[in-house]
Nucleic acid binder design. Structure first.
Length: 569
RNA sequence: GGGCUCGUGGCUUAGCCAGGAUAUAGCGCUGGGCUUCUAACCCAGACGUCGGGGGUUCAAAUCCCUUCGAGCCCGCCA
């Protein structure tokens, strides 16, 4: 709705500027939102410097040339000093309510768009996901949901490292130490992986054994490959379990080794060689990317002839480029340099480059997390503790409810809180994990939004019982005239523009903030406007419809954030 | 040493790319509100050199330079 409002305002403003005998670039016709107006233009400032005239006078001149077409969402345009303010009218509010009721779960969806292949998480299968990894999963999964709602056809992939050095260490560790199969499989893998690394640090001569394993895999040795696969699938099964609990879904798990087996790795090395950019440096094959701003060369083949992660990743990206219009990768800050080099190399051989979303690190008070050193907080532990804390809350707040209900709510609230806490801050901020904050539900986070949703559901439920309310009954939205009602409608109306913005800029935190503001608007309405107890029957019907609208948009927001929307909590 | 990112009330954080009307919100703090649709809520208040310095501009949290602090990265790991 808001996107349409903005489009109408843009067209009205453009015509008026032209009619006033002025000219301005389309890129200057953007709006800001403020407490003064639904949309405010600063075009007069730009025109003032262009024409060397007073911006106030120009604003007045443009406003006097404004013509609002019939049926427009815009009701009034006024100049306030140099600002040109656009005010939405009743028609906009009424259409918003009607559209939400009509489109329901589709409200806020964009027109069908291109195919996007999005890769996220892709953590090495050498242990369980930790709180750093799930920042990747949550940003990636939320982005996938946002892009789908924006209209894109999104396929999500997890790239499985099943043949790197770390996996060789895992495989070696599995032969050397007993796996504790009573543990979750990824944790059992981490146990022996950590032990193996201690061993390798003590006795560096074992490194030769690791090298030998990697050479065997690269050469296609069946027994070694089989042992790698066993370890990898154990770890991946545990990782999948964690992701499932987090409500994160991948469409495909793609193994690195497929590109070696298929010959794609060999082919892409040949393609890069053909550019004349490669040379041999101490036996290794390197690419010169100095004209792309990379001072150091990129190694794409070890001196023993084996491939590296980078080489296999190049082949993976070549494959991805062939099956989608856009490729998006979610990477941690440690991948900044390598992803830049990857993009440059792909550019050199004429392959579509990925768009890379980088997020900064989550560290512990004692330093950065490391699976190798066993220094990490697993996602599983976080989920357990957070849902336990949520359960305590449900027990004190809803003691009368059944145990099964309490458990379900605790899971929805706990996992929702984790997802919201991570997605609400921009990816470029580095954070330090802290238990006290992670277990705190008092702030306006996911539970606040979920609670608003539950309240809306509760009103509708009660209305069904007491006055046999029916969601498809005809209503008159123009009876919604209270300030809090209008604020709520306007907030709901902007959902589509939030999805559009988040999708365009690949910024999921924009939606997280919106959802909180929407809940805020609903809670204020809830506090000040009686619904079931409304004095007039028609007003009551309109308000019930508004509550239903709020429920729908809250559900859509929560769904897009991958957070459960409980009907009662 | 070089590159990238961040620095906004006690804490966490939006805004910065496209400079403009009172700098966003939460936690915490002070005070108030449940016989009314779930108080995981609402209302009011205090708290800010937008890291420091310089510059550009009619106008800078936003652009440029510089400096300090934090994180990440810098070829045969991923």
């Amino acid at each position: 709705m808001f996107l349409e409002l903005k489009a109408q305002a843009t067209s009205i403003l453009k015509d008026a500027i032209q009619k006033a005998g002025l000219e301005i670039e389309d890129s200057e016709l953007y709006f800001e939102t403020s407490s003064y107006a639904d949309l405010a233009s600063r075009a007069a400032f730009r025109l003032a410097s262009l024409y060397r005239q007073n911006p106030k006078e120009l604003a007045a001149r443009i406003v006097s040339a404004i013509e609002i077409p019939d049926g427009s969402y815009i009701e009034e345009v006024s100049a306030s000093g140099p600002y040109i303010n656009f005010h939405a009218g009743r028609h906009y509010l009424d259409r918003t309510v009607a559209t939400v009721l009509e489109e329901k779960e589709k409200f806020g969806c964009g027109a069908p768009k291109d195919k996007i292949l999005l890769e996220h998480t892709s953590a090495n299968p050498n242990g369980p996901l930790h709180v750093g990894h799930i920042r990747n999963s949550i940003i990636g999964d939320t982005l996938a949901r946002i892009l789908r709602r924006a209209g894109y056809d999104v396929e999500v992939q997890y790239y499985v490292n099943d043949m790197g050095r770390q996996i060789a260490v895992v495989s070696w560790a599995c032969e050397r130490f007993e796996l504790d199969l009573s543990r979750k499989p990824d944790s059992a893998i981490a146990d022996v992986y950590i032990k193996a690394n201690v061993e390798l640090d003590k006795n560096p001569e074992y490194i030769k054994e690791i090298d030998a394993l990697m050479e065997k895999v690269e050469a296609g040795d069946v027994r070694t490959i089989d042992s790698f696969n066993k370890a990898v699938s154990l770890a991946i099964s545990g990782i999948k379990e964690t992701l499932l609990r987090l409500n994160v879904v991948h469409d495909k798990f793609v193994s690195e080794s497929t590109f070696l087996k298929s010959g794609a790795v060999h082919d892409i090395v040949e393609r890069i060689k053909a550019t004349g950019r490669t040379k041999t440096d101490k036996g290794a094959l390197v690419v010169d990317l100095s004209d792309y701003g990379f001072k150091k060369t990129l190694v794409i083949q070890r001196s023993n002839g084996t491939s590296l992660y980078t080489t296999r990743d190049l082949a993976y990206h070549e494959w991805k480029a062939g099956q989608a219009d856009r490729i998006i990768d979610i990477f941690g800050a440690d991948h900044k340099l390598i992803s830049g080099q990857l993009r440059a190399t792909l550019n050199v051989i004429g392959i579509k480059e990925p768009e890379v979303v980088i997020f900064e690190f989550v560290s512990l008070p004692e330093g950065s997390m490391s699976t190798r050193r066993g220094q990490f907080i697993s996602a599983d532990e976080l989920f357990d503790r957070v849902t336990e804390a949520a359960l305590e809350q449900v027990e004190t707040r809803r003691p009368e409810t059944a145990d099964e209900f309490k458990k379900q709510v605790a899971e929805m609230v706990g996992i929702g809180a984790v997802r919201y806490d991570i997605v609400r801050v921009s990816p470029e901020k580095s954070t330090v994990f802290n238990w006290k904050e992670a277990l705190d539900f008092e702030k306006q986070g996911a539970p606040y939004i979920q609670y608003s949703h539950a309240r809306a559901c509760s009103i509708l439920e009660k209305a069904k019982e007491e006055i046999s309310w029916n969601s498809s009954a005809e209503i008159d939205p123009s009876l919604l005239v209270e300030d809090t009602e209008i604020d709520l409608i306007k907030k709901m109306a902007s959902f589509d523009s939030i999805i559009d913005l988040a999708a365009r800029e690949l910024k999921p935190h924009v939606l997280a903030i919106y959802a909180r503001e929407l809940a805020d608007a609903f809670n204020q309405f809830y506090r000040f406007v009686p619904v079931i107890a409304a004095e007039d029957e028609k007003v009551r019907a309109a308000r019930l419809a508004l509550v239903n609208c709020a429920r729908i948009v809250l559900t859509n927001s929560l769904n897009t954030l991958g957070i459960a929307a409980p009907e009662s909590m």
